[in-house]
């Protein structure tokens, strides 16, 4: 194993982590402010990818597609919040799990209804194709570097939004005491819709960016959703900082596990068995990580509240 390969894998882990952060940030905000478990968050990821692919195919511009993904996910998010989600805030987690599980079925099948059964095409924009050189003789794909950049920018933007703006102040107030901000005359209904749409838009953005790397197809959101849940639970639910650190941790551990574990087992079990055992363990690794962290810190690394 060379240093260049190691660095490249590390960057891959960070890129996966950044993408998970975009998903997890919305989930954790929605949970922190409204106390809602949203299983349908993966659907916004899918909606973003489909909107981007459809618009990019129609106009030939990835960037218009990207804008469309934000708009579509935010719009659908706002609509769903106003028609369904709003009725769930006062319910227990059980009802929320069921209702948003139902939304997954509706969104998945609805998307297939609209776009057909076959995966869509979406490629990375011309400007971002190619690779860049890194110190140590390694090279890294420009587009993935750009994803890392977007993730960092979003993290910074969210920090400023929450720490410095009026909306952020209300979000913080909402996390601290839900009844109180209502009493202070803040329009909670609008605030909730805005927060939900913001979370949906971030998921849509993640879906669109990753859609260019992967396959744009129905059901693409659910595996990411489960990972995003792992992230926010590790990071501490409601904490943006926790989501960021949890996401990077999960991304790096998952990538490095898939890279290093098979090699480790091959070294003393032989190639065939070593690969099998290493791969099996690698696929369980982040769940083991999560169980370990929760066993030691039952409310995650940076719990905003219990």
């Amino acid at each position: 194993m060379t240093l260049a390969l190691f660095i490249e894998q590390l960057l891959n882990g960070i890129q996966l982590g950044v993408m998970l952060f975009l998903m997890a940030a919305g989930l954790t905000l929605i949970f922190g402010v409204m106390g809602l478990i949203n299983l349908a968050h993966g659907s916004f990821y899918m909606i973003g990818a489909f909107a981007c692919a459809a618009v990019a195919a129609a106009t030939g511009s990835f960037w218009l597609g990207l804008a469309a993904s934000l708009a579509a996910a935010a719009l659908v998010g706002a609509l769903v919040e106003m028609t369904v989600i709003r009725r769930l805030y006062e319910r227990d987690h059980l009802d929320q799990v069921l209702a948003t599980f139902a939304l997954i079925l509706i969104f998945s099948e609805g998307t297939r209804w609209l776009f057909g059964s076959f995966p869509l095409y979406l490629d990375i924009p011309q400007v971002l194709s190619g690779t860049i050189d890194l110190p140590g003789g390694s090279r890294y794909q420009l587009y993935r570097m750009a994803i890392i950049g977007v993730g960092v920018a979003v993290a910074g933007g969210l920090y400023l939004l929450i720490a410095r703006t009026r909306l952020g102040m209300r979000i913080r107030a909402g996390e601290a005491d839900r009844e109180m901000i209502g009493a202070l005359g803040v329009d909670i209904r609008t605030l909730y819709t805005v927060v939900f749409a913001l979370g949906a838009a971030l998921a849509g953005l993640a879906g669109a960016m990753v859609g260019a790397l992967q396959s744009v197809q129905v059901g693409m959101g659910e595996p990411v959703l489960i990972l995003a849940f792992v992230v926010i639970v590790i990071g501490g639910i409601g904490s943006i900082k926790g989501a960021l650190i949890g996401a990077i941790l999960v991304g790096v551990v998952d990538t490095m596990g898939r890279f290093l574990l098979p090699q480790f087992f091959i070294s003393f079990m032989g190639p065939s068995q070593g690969t099998a055992v290493g791969s099996a363990l690698a696929s369980m690794l982040i769940y083991i990580l999560m169980a370990l962290i929760l066993a030691v810190r039952p409310s995650g690394l940076f719990a905003a509240k219990g």
């Binding site: 060379t2 390969l5 490249e8 894998q9 990538t255 898939r258 890279f259 098979p262 690969t275 791969s279």
Partner: peptide, 21 residues
Amino acid sequence: GETYTQLGQTDYAAEIAQIRA
């Protein structure tokens, strides 16, 4: 090299890096 990936895996950056090496 012989690699078994995770079922349903959608990111192959790690595997591609290994292939290159």
